[in-house]
Design a binder for these strands. Structure first.
Lengths: 129, 129
DNA sequence: ACCGTTGTACGATGTTTGTCGAATGAAAGA
DNA sequence: TCTTTCATTCGACAAACATCGTACAACGGT
């Protein structure tokens, strides 16, 4: 039996029709979560531990859940890793231009300039190297 | 001495350069505040008591403060009234397309359809009539 | 001078949120 | 099999938040 069926709580992903704009705005109004989103824009898929954020693993898990349950990200399991992607197409189909307007706005602001998010492959990334 | 100079706390309005996207997203992620913003889009200027929201006056004051201090609205005093406007131009100059993308997204969602915001003049509006 | 209108400030309250540490579960490798 | 790695859930905690009632301040009219 694959791991995805054995998890105590299955990964819940809302359908695009269920997206709530207020939930999405709330999800993206946190600096850590905004960093996650920006990182995913320049990396197709990443494992949880490879994000350039400075919080405890359990905190990161919490932020992923907020993003996932609002529809911003999708997570898929493979072995011990959990791969995360941005649901850019789903978001854009439901709310055209929203994601782009928000991230662009953030990156043109002062806060966005302070911490440029590095692009590049993340599938074999080791944060301790 | 006019009232605006006698208030214990003066009305603080951040400059467009000081706008913080995360603050704006947080400000607009609340249903009551979203209603305020949507109402202001279809009414040039409104007094505080004329908004179609169902909260206590003190709660409304709180929401106005959140919106004002994040740069979303501007408030000006005149007699006993406090006139509120949307800072659409300032917002659009600083973060092009952001306000429109957010409000449009909200109004195309289910939550937006449930409570259409009425347009019309508000300068002489009497909620008890 | 007095009152009604308008909206705020303050204090209290219950909820949500962000944070962490510890324990847990599952898979991969030794 | 044992250990390491990856990421989660749980419980706890302080801070922030939405809400309200009450008291208050300022203006405008009577």
């Amino acid at each position: 039996m694959p791991r995805s069926q054995r998890r105590r709580t299955a990964l819940t992903h809302p359908e695009p029709e269920e997206f709530d704009v207020l939930d999405i705005l709330h999800a993206m109004s946190d600096p850590t979560r905004m960093t996650i989103v920006r990182t995913l824009r320049s990396a197709p898929e990443r494992a949880c531990g490879t994000f350039p954020v400075d919080v405890a693993p359990s905190t990161l898990s919490h932020h992923f859940r907020v993003l996932r349950e609002s529809g911003v990200i999708r997570q898929r399991e493979e072995g011990t890793r959990r791969w995360t992607t941005l649901r850019a197409e789903d978001l854009d189909r439901r709310f055209p231009g929203l994601l782009d307007a928000i991230v662009t706005a953030y990156e043109t602001s002062a806060a966005g300039r302070e911490q440029p998010v590095a692009a590049g492959r993340a599938d074999r990334h080791d944060p301790r190297s």
